[in-house]
């Protein structure tokens, strides 16, 4: 198992290299003189020169890339053009907010999708099935920022059941954290829940037709055990793949959700950095996001082995 994990880790290195090249190239995409553009319209020549110096723009591209990559590998993501703080420090300070939001969103989406997928998948064509299918289409089409605003309007403004904005670290107060995270996490997780439900429903319908399910029934297992132990565990395998893909878009979705609920996470930082033209910070955000996404997908691959012994490496 350890060898499998190591192999997968090694396989991500070329991918991360291409990603680093793409992230680095962002600077090259800036129309005109990057130092001039990043400094803003009313910058003095000295300020422009300072940015040129800070970002090392006077050197050839390849030299800059290698130097930048060398720094990134050692955890040096550069310095914010806006606050002069090391980019990595700012990111690490905000990462717990975004991660707790994303993880809670995934858990909520699973808590919706697993029962919904099992119920509809074992009773295709039933009323529950049709209601859930329509519901999941709607869940996919509703923009998440709009859903978030509606929840704020109904549950935080009309009825003060939840705080409308802000974030409380889980280490300060578990109940405070929960109250602040529920609405944003639900907002973020609903689209993933819709996709996962569809996926699980389809897989359950297929699996319930399999011989081993018939065998399990024939030997007199209660229907509940057949569904959960035999059918669900097999139907969950494709769902794990989708979960990996969904985690990726969930991470992107935090940008919008953090903005609505005033959460001081990485997504909020990303938007603020666009307006301050803080390119090193943006590059840091992208790299951090990709690293998290790659790690999640690695976890997904490894968890295949748990769900499906057939793919376990010999």
């Amino acid at each position: 198992m350890l060898r499998f994990v190591l192999q997968r880790l090694l396989a991500t290195i070329p991918l991360l290299l291409i990603v680093s090249l793409l992230v680095f190239s962002l600077v090259l995409l800036i129309p005109g003189d990057p130092a001039f553009q990043l400094a803003g319209e009313d910058a003095t020549p000295e300020e422009v020169e300072a940015i040129r110096e800070a970002m090392g723009l006077n050197d050839p591209v390849m030299v800059r890339y290698v130097r930048w990559l060398g720094g990134v590998v050692q955890g040096d993501l550069g310095t914010s053009l806006f606050s002069d703080q090391p980019v990595l420090d700012v990111l690490l300070e905000r990462l717990p907010v975004t991660l707790s939001l994303a993880v809670t969103a995934i858990l909520i989406s699973l808590a919706i999708a697993i029962p919904a997928g099992i119920i509809t998948g074992t009773r295709p064509g039933s009323l529950a099935d049709r209601v859930v299918t329509v519901g999941s289409s709607v869940g996919l089409a509703v923009p998440n920022f709009w859903l978030g605003l509606m929840l704020v309007l109904l549950l935080a403004i009309r009825h003060a059941w939840f705080p409308a904005t802000g974030y409380v670290p889980i280490s300060d107060s578990v109940s405070g954290w929960w109250a602040h995270i529920v609405l944003p996490a639900f907002t973020l997780g609903l689209a993933a829940a819709a996709i996962l439900t569809r996926q699980l429903r389809g897989a359950m319908v297929d699996v319930m037709d399999q011989d081993y399910v018939r065998t399990a029934r024939a030997k007199g297992l209660p229907e509940r055990a057949v569904t959960v132990k035999h059918a669900f565990k097999n139907a969950a395998i494709p769902m794990v793949t989708i979960l990996g893909v969904q985690t990726n878009s969930l991470l992107g979705g935090t940008i919008i959700v953090e903005q609505i609920f005033g959460m001081p996470g990485i997504g909020q930082l990303a938007v603020a950095s666009v307006f301050t033209r803080d390119l090193p910070m943006i590059q840091g955000v992208v790299i951090m996001a990709v690293v998290v996404a790659v790690l999640v997908n690695l976890l997904v691959d490894v968890s295949y082995g748990y769900f499906n012994p057939k793919v376990r490496p010999k």
């Binding site: 070329p14 991918l15 291409i18 990603v19 793409l22 992230v23 962002l26 600077v27 995409l29 800036i30 129309p31 990726n248 878009s249 969930l250 991470l251 992107g252 979705g253 940008i255 919008i256 990303a270 938007v271 950095s273 666009v274 307006f275 033209r277 390119l279 943006i282 590059q283 955000v285 992208v286 996001a289 990709v290 996404a293 790659v294 997908n297």
Partner: peptide, 25 residues
């Protein structure tokens, strides 16, 4: 295909925000 894989490993909205950061909103 390797370039495509790399592109797909970005969380979508974050990549969009990065591109907009460079090109301007």
């Amino acid at each position: 295909m390797r370039a495509t894989d790399a592109l797909m490993s970005f969380p979508p909205l974050i990549l969009a925000v990065a591109i907009i950061a460079v090109l301007g909103p």
